[in-house]
């Protein structure tokens, strides 16, 4: 990543006019931040109100008295721990298989050059261009009865892990990255008589830690948020992740408790984002949007 550059030069931005512009920009961005963050703050304080207070009109964002027990109540009554564990199961398994399968395939395409690898690359690009929603129905019927094996993957995490593991985007990005690893390193390994599998695990993967982390974080976010496929595959409520379970479960709860539950559900992705922001930024500027 290059050094930052801005339209105004250093001298200009330090001049009086430049300082005024920067002041206006800062105020504007602070206002925008308030708008963007408001739903989070609102959720948090609404979760502290009584069920009558939440219907009271007016701009009273803060509760008269903070009912912290709301949070404790939804945590236990909704069994939110269960939902979070399910979300982690779905997401971590999905990320694991996605990275493993993608990097194995990318290594083959980049280093081992199988016959027809250009055809496979083209197929992967075509796959990228077709939105998942277009084949969600046959995907569902395939999961209901897997061809050849004739087993159903409904109500099983495999029914999510395996479809998630097929990811053309990751294969293409990793292949591009593997292509840039210097040949000399592989030649040295070849002299030592290392097998492809050993080369893969002892050279390629360690050298690709950064990209694997970025792709892992991006997959984690995407899979944690996924709604439609888990909704279809996990019909058993005890298996459902937060995204699927919470909305239906809170239907019979008063609005203040709904907000408390929503705020708890917001926390894991927020904490992850703040601690992993470096990788998110790296990831978003990669691949399709790299220039």
């Amino acid at each position: 990543m290059s050094l930052s550059s801005s339209v105004m030069s250093k001298v200009e931005s330090r001049s009086r006019r430049g300082r005024v512009i920067r002041g206006i920009i800062t105020v504007g961005l602070i206002l925008l931040s308030i708008v963007m963050l408001f739903p989070f703050v609102f959720t948090f304080t609404a979760g502290l109100k009584t069920s009558a207070e939440i219907y009271k009109p007016g701009l009273n964002i803060l509760p008269a008295t903070a009912h912290w027990e709301n949070y404790q109540q939804v945590w236990t009554r909704l069994n939110m721990l269960r939902m979070f564990i399910n979300s982690f199961m779905v997401t971590l398994g999905g990320v694991f298989f996605q990275l493993l399968f993608s990097s194995l395939a990318a290594f083959s395409l980049s280093r081992l050059k199988p016959v027809g690898h250009t055809i496979i690359m083209t197929l992967l690009l075509v796959t990228l261009a077709i939105p998942g929603i277009a084949y969600i129905i046959p995907l569902y019927t395939t999961l209901v009865r897997l061809p050849v094996l004739n087993i159903s993957l409904l109500n099983s995490y495999w029914g999510l892990w395996l479809p998630y593991s097929a990811n053309a985007f990751n294969i293409l990005i990793l292949k591009n990255f593997f292509d840039q690893i210097p040949r000399d390193i592989y030649d040295a390994a070849a002299v030592d008589g290392a097998s492809p599998l050993r080369t893969f695990f002892t050279i390629t993967l360690p050298l690709s830690r950064s990209i694997l982390l970025i792709l892992g974080v991006l997959s984690f976010i995407a899979l944690w948020k996924d709604y439609l496929l888990p909704l279809l595959v996990l019909r058993d409520a005890d298996l459902q992740p937060v995204t699927v379970r919470l909305f239906t479960l809170v239907r019979d709860f008063p609005r203040n408790l709904q907000m408390a539950a929503a705020f708890i559900a917001m926390l894991p992705p927020l904490l992850a984002a703040v601690s992993l922001q470096r990788f998110i930024k790296g990831g978003l500027t990669m691949g399709g949007t790299k220039g």
């Binding site: 930052s4 105004m8 919470l246 929503a262």
Partner: peptide
């Protein structure tokens, strides 16, 4: 954000936070 140079980073992060929230949770709110 770009004109603020380094100080701008925090605004980028703030604007990104809603993107992380699963749609069902956001819709409750």
């Amino acid at each position: 954000i770009n004109e603020l140079r380094r100080m701008g980073g925090i605004f980028g992060l703030i604007a990104y936070l809603p993107t992380l929230i699963p749609v069902t949770i956001a819709l409750l709110v």
